[in-house]
Design a protein around this nucleic acid. Structure first.
Lengths: 117, 117
DNA sequence: TTAATATTTCAATAACAATTGAAATATGAA
DNA sequence: TTCATATTTCAATTGTTATTGAAATATTAA
């Protein structure tokens, strides 16, 4: 992933309602949630919800499937993982230098540090 | 961290120039970089750079220190780590359900999966 | 078919974000 | 002090994003 790909994904998460929507879908897992359930859970007007879901879909953070008269939305873990990888790409080496055992370091790179007390 | 805290941090990363600035500072590590070096490296006009650095500082993703006539900027790993933790909070359980060995899972939760070929 | 529910689209408005060039401020060097 | 370099601020402009209510579309139930 490159900056130019990551920026719109970040932008689509950078809005409180959308971030809540995405997180609710992450918690819902593979089963996903119908649009209406999200609207109820988050107290968002239908038109606004639809607008935000469209943004998230465009960013490939969610996908949707029509099921009867409901539209089921699901979080796209593949996209989120790619984004997280991008964000943590150069983080570990630098964090190590400043003696931070960073959450951004992949497991293999975790320093065998003095245990936190 | 909560949605309302994370959204402005994400917003400040959700702009290609700022994302590049932040990444350059991550790579630079604890030594940081003067504003001018960033301007040169990224080809950004001084006023624009200053605007973006201000946004990043407001989001607590960077801090700055005057050194002679230069202003040195540094990435704030603490903020980035808090953001990454927030983003991965509910990711692992859900990702596991969908048989994704997610980058978003903390080490302890990584599934003992069939090795990738 | 008609009515009810779920979701999306549309148009209008309001708020916000990014870029520009010029001017201001701050520091260090001559 | 005067000049040069580094950075920030300002005002104007432009473009983008979010919210609203109303209307349109799609599916199911009566």
């Amino acid at each position: 992933m490159k900056t130019i790909d990551a920026a719109p994904i970040l932008a689509s998460l950078a809005q409180p309602t959308r971030l809540d929507i995405f997180r609710a879908l992450v918690v819902a897992g593979p089963a996903g949630l119908p649009a209406g359930a999200l609207a109820d859970a988050l107290g968002v007007a239908p038109a606004a919800l639809s607008f935000h879901l469209k943004e998230l879909r465009f960013a490939q953070l969610v996908d949707s499937e029509q099921q009867g008269r409901y539209v089921i939305y699901r979080a796209r873990f593949d996209t989120m993982n790619a984004l997280l990888s991008f964000l943590t790409e150069n983080c570990c080496a630098a964090a190590s230098e400043s003696s931070v055992n960073a959450a951004c370091c992949p497991p293999a790179a975790q320093k065998k540090s003095r245990r936190a007390s």
